[in-house]
């Protein structure tokens, strides 16, 4: 027994060393991954002059440089606060509408029989990968005709339309998993499709709806291209407002760093709060 474990000792020591090595490598990678965001955060807490002259890492030797004045200036300006509210007014309706419209459609695709159902669904799946670039010019023209170009509803509708294929795909697959007996029992009790949808399918579909809602929220909150084309300066979200400052990156760092940090803090909080749903949504429906 002793001889046996003695023979294994070198191998164990080796595996212990390699384990320690893996730990160190992963620790290095984790720091490497955190550093850029930390840099942004620290830069947002330093005055413009400090940022122009030295790198953010100098705060570790001179903590006195830290100040919240950038944030105070940014939030008292009014323009940024307005764009923050625009982001909310775009993101919340776009998320709710996608969830509602997609779950209605997903229910029909999963549980209502109608001719050509599978073909229509395949077309929707096909639309998953359509790049939004292809719709920019035609929809800009369409919005011009009906007079919602540059408005928040225009931006919202665009986000809803391009969120639908993924949303329908995700929810339909989930709804298919609901036991048929549950739906039939409800039907025997005399419930119509609408009642079944609200009383049975929506409550049971909560996990998938949560994943979808978080995804859609993040996409819309983080979008730049759609608002770049369809929003004007009154309806622009934070991303577009900040993008306008990028031209003078060095000179505007006192606006860009705190602005970017404020714009990322909400999705980050959502991400940490609902991490499980986020990952589940990812697993359920990649390839978009």
């Amino acid at each position: 027994m002793t001889a046996f474990s003695a023979a294994r000792a070198p191998a164990r020591a080796l595996s212990w060393v390699s384990k320690g090595f893996v730990q160190i490598v992963l620790l290095g990678i984790a720091i490497f991954w955190l550093l850029p965001t930390l840099g942004l955060f620290v830069a947002s807490l330093r005055s413009e002059a400090d940022n122009t002259n030295t790198g953010w890492w100098t705060v570790f030797t001179k903590p006195a440089e830290l100040t919240v004045s950038n944030y105070q200036k940014l939030l008292s300006g009014g323009g940024f606060t307005a764009s923050f509210w625009n982001t909310i007014w775009i993101t919340v309706p776009a998320t709710l509408l996608v969830v509602l419209i997609a779950s209605l459609a997903a229910y029909a695709f999963a549980w209502v029989d109608f001719p050509g159902r599978d073909w229509v669904f395949l077309v929707v799946v096909g639309l998953l990968v359509v790049p939004i670039q292809v719709a920019l010019i035609p929809v800009a023209r369409l919005y011009g005709l009906i007079g919602i170009f540059g408005s928040i509803p225009g931006v919202v509708l665009f986000h809803v339309a391009f969120g639908l294929p993924f949303a329908i795909f995700l929810l339909r697959n989930f709804f298919m998993g609901i036991p048929r007996e549950l739906l039939e029992a409800a039907r025997i009790d005399g419930c119509g499709d609408l009642t079944i949808f609200f009383r049975v399918v929506l409550p049971l579909g909560k996990p998938a709806i949560a994943s979808l809602g978080i995804f859609q929220f993040m996409w819309v909150w983080n979008d730049l291209l759609v608002s770049l084309v369809f929003a004007n300066t009154d309806s622009q979200p934070m991303t577009k407002a900040l993008q306008a400052q990028m031209r003078q990156f060095g000179a505007n760092i006192d606006v860009l760093a705190p602005g970017a940090f404020l714009s990322l803090i909400v999705p980050l909080v959502v991400f940490f709060a609902f991490q499980r749903h986020f990952v589940q949504g990812l697993l359920a429906g990649s390839v978009k």
Binding site: G39, L40, T239, M246, A260
Partner: peptide, 27 residues
């Protein structure tokens, strides 16, 4: 996984800081 939650705009600002040419500012 965290950067997935951050907008490309914010990531862009982050990496403009990282890639800043002046060695006194770019990490």
């Amino acid at each position: 996984f965290m950067p997935m939650a951050v907008s490309f705009l914010a990531s862009g600002v982050i990496f403009r800081l990282v890639y800043e040419g002046d060695p006194h500012r770019g990490v």
